[in-house]
Amino acid sequence: MSTVVLLIVTGLGLGALYFLIASGLSLIFGLMDVLNFAHGAFLALGAYGTWWAASFLPGAGPDGIGFLLALAFGVAAGTLAATLVELCVIRPLYGRHREQILATVGLSLATPALLQAVWGADPLTFPKPQLVRGTVEVLGASIPRDRLLLILAAAALFTALWLFNSRTRYGLIVRAGVQDRAMVTALGIDVRRSFTLVFAIGGAAAALAGALGGLYYGVVTPTQGMSLLIFAFIVVVIGGTTSLTGCAIASVTVALVQQFANYYTVAGLGDIAVVIVLALVLLTRQGGLAAKKSAERVA
């Protein structure tokens, strides 16, 4: 029993991490049709930004308020990077989806190389604040505290995004844009202005995921972003791009399948089981997320 509880909570923690990455990815993809390979770069920037701030920034530190400050610095770095990428790289290439993908691919190759040049290829030990060290007893299982922090962060992001989507004017434009971009433009609303906003939100969420992923794994490496990004892609395909809830459910499902299969069968099989789930979804739902938009998609 305690093993099952442990696996569920750990799976939820991993699902929270996936949700943090996939929510931004699916927003960007749904609104702009951009498959953002640079998302892994934002994640790595967030992780390294937090690590750097915790070690070197005056005022910030590896514990307590200092860590929150370091986290804020990392998230700010990711947000800034995402905004810059949207303004300088994506914006000049509007309407040319292939080129946009190619540009983000170039960034996704260059950024880890840059991080590696500055801080080396070896994993760096990530600071762990006192609060999330150790374990908590839940139903007889000892749960690592950082998993709970991840779940809390994902829940907070979910609520914030939900409020943004349903209560703000920009959220309305973004939702309408995901459904039918041409119609929104025809109504006289410049949907492109919300592109930068969506990119910034996605970058912030990815940077947060990078920092919290540092807590989850205990280390940061330049290439961590890419492997997490692939699972986030799988989540986006299974969950679709139209609803936040779909994304959340898909994140949790993928993570739980992965955790349980990894524990009860051979390690590594869980990751492959996720791919099998993806294939099943594609075969049964005939198209998954692509069914809605394939007619207008040119890429």
Binding site: L35, A267, D271, I272, L283, A290, R297
Partner: peptide, 28 residues
Amino acid sequence: AVALRVNGIALAMVTLAFAQAGSILVSR
């Protein structure tokens, strides 16, 4: 045969996932 049931960017993601499964298999 499986991956080509989807188009465009979904195809990109699905083929990526298959390749990742192979990559994990090899490194494990």
